Simulated scan of single mutants.
Amino acid sequence: MGVELDDDLSNMKSGVYTFCANGAIYHIIDQLVPRDGLPRYLQLYFYDSETDFTHRLQWPNIDRNIIKVLLGVLSTNLYATTFRSLRELGPLDNYRVSLNASVELHQRVYNRPTTSKVAGIWVEGNDNITTYKRSIVVYGRSDYSTQIQPYKGCYDPLSYPLFFPNGESGWHAKIARDGVSINEVVGNEENIVDDLEGAKSKKGRNTVTMREYYCYKFQIRSSKNLILLGRRLLQQFVVDMYIKIETSRLLFCKLNQKKIRSDLYQGSVDRVNAGEVEPSIVGQRIVLLASFIGGPHDMR
């Protein structure tokens, strides 16, 4: 996880701990082979159980008994079990793992018969046609890390495995509303622009929005809601999901400026009419909808 925190509120030294982020939150998956010889995060699963346990205990302030409990909880996690099964391959330098980011109805048709439902592994140089549709590819060795896009269904289980211990999917753009058939929302191609928070057709949405999904996840119920028991991790999760929703709304506004008719607003057009000819000086203005909460039009 990468984030720029407010040091005055998140220092854990004075006052009440508050998770306050500046800007965006991003989640990344590193290469399969440790860069410095010290495995961490995803790389731990490719070792045997005892070695994995020993590596985890190298981090400070870690309780041995809690680690055993957590490893037991994640023993049924689809991603964890898949990664552990790959350690039999030996050195992973020339391999790549393709994580299935598609959560469509007939997802299994994109899989090889011998692979699991969440990931597959290929030797470098294999034809890419066999990879999953809209997959996240993690290489054995690469010059950069792979970023998990927030609109993918695997974003939540990969970023917060303790809240999704079985590897179940988080929010994705194809969650049908009550009374809507899954066949009505599952298409052949992904059009993320139409599925972003804020998109709405004349007939209304037939899918669950990101905001509606997380409102449901945060509800207090008669049975225990695992997420609400997360304490500081809950704080991080709430902030992350809020930024995730705001980012999707901003992206929708950015990609739909023609519908908003931003060219009619004062700003860039006025600069051009005044004789400015240098594009880098004029810049590009993004106009927010009046329905965007906290925006200039909404505040007025």
Rank of each mutant, 00 (worst) to 15 (best):
G2H: 11
L5N: 02
D6W: 05
D7V: 10
D8K: 15
D8N: 14
S14I: 13
G15H: 07
T18Y: 01
T18N: 11
F19D: 03
N22H: 12
A24D: 15
I25Q: 13
I28K: 12
I29R: 07
D30F: 02
Q31I: 03
V33T: 12
G37K: 06
L38P: 00
R40A: 11
S49I: 01
H55S: 05
R56F: 00
L57I: 05
D63I: 10
I66F: 10
L70R: 06
L70M: 07
S75Y: 01
S75W: 00
S75A: 12
T76F: 07
L78P: 00
Y79C: 00
Y79A: 02
A80E: 05
A80V: 09
T81V: 09
F83T: 02
S85F: 06
G90F: 08
G90P: 09
P91Q: 08
L92C: 11
D93M: 03
D93A: 11
V97C: 02
N100L: 09
S102A: 14
E104W: 08
H106M: 08
H106Q: 10
Q107W: 12
Q107D: 13
V109R: 11
Y110A: 03
N111H: 14
P113S: 09
K117H: 07
V118T: 11
A119P: 05
V123E: 13
N128P: 04
T131Y: 11
T131A: 10
K133A: 08
V137F: 01
V137A: 02
V138Y: 02
V138A: 02
V138C: 03
V138H: 01
Y155I: 04
P157R: 05
L158D: 04
P161L: 06
F163L: 15
P165K: 00
E168H: 05
E168D: 14
H172Y: 09
H172T: 03
H172E: 01
K174L: 15
A176E: 13
G179F: 03
S181C: 09
N183D: 14
N183E: 14
N183H: 15
E184Q: 13
E184L: 14
V185W: 06
G187I: 06
G187E: 12
N188W: 02
N188C: 06
E189H: 13
E190D: 14
N191L: 10
N191Y: 14
D194Y: 06
L196H: 01
L196E: 00
E197Y: 07
G198S: 05
A199H: 13
K203Q: 10
N206Q: 08
N206I: 15
N206P: 02
R211K: 15
C215V: 03
Y216D: 12
K217F: 03
Q219D: 09
I220M: 06
R221T: 15
S223K: 15
L226I: 14
L229D: 08
G230R: 06
Q235A: 15
Q236V: 13
F237V: 02
F237C: 11
V238E: 10
V239H: 08
D240K: 09
T247S: 15
S248D: 14
L250P: 00
K254G: 12
K254I: 14
L255F: 12
K259I: 11
K259E: 14
D263Q: 13
L264W: 05
Q266M: 03
D270Y: 04
R271T: 03
R271D: 06
N273M: 14
N273L: 15
N273I: 10
A274M: 12
A274S: 15
G275C: 04
G275H: 03
E276N: 08
I281Q: 07
Q284N: 10
R285Y: 07
V287I: 13
L289A: 12
G294W: 04
